[in-house]
């Protein structure tokens, strides 16, 4: 699974399927401060991801 991080860094994560929420927990991202797409489609935290998926994590909280 290829994961594109909010800073545009790319990480390849091996291992079995997991939920989006579990992935966010692994990388230390707060689910309320990001949205996540799988292969270009928005998915909720309960969606299961893995295999050849391309996951993009987009930070949404900006400004002062």
């Amino acid at each position: 699974m290829k994961v594109i991080l909010p800073d545009q860094g790319v990480r390849v994560i091996e291992g079995g399927p997991r939920t989006v929420g579990a992935l966010l927990h692994e990388i230390g991202a707060n689910p309320l401060e990001v949205i996540v797409s799988r292969n270009g489609k928005l998915v909720p935290e309960q969606a299961t991801i893995g295999g050849d998926d391309e996951i993009r994590i987009i930070r949404i909280a900006h400004g002062g």
């Binding site: 309320l32 949205i35 928005l42 987009i58 949404i60």
Partner: peptide, 11 residues
């Protein structure tokens, strides 16, 4: 919520 606004735009 902020997340729903971002999602509203994304879709």
């Amino acid at each position: 919520p902020e997340k729903e606004i971002a999602s509203y735009l994304f879709v």
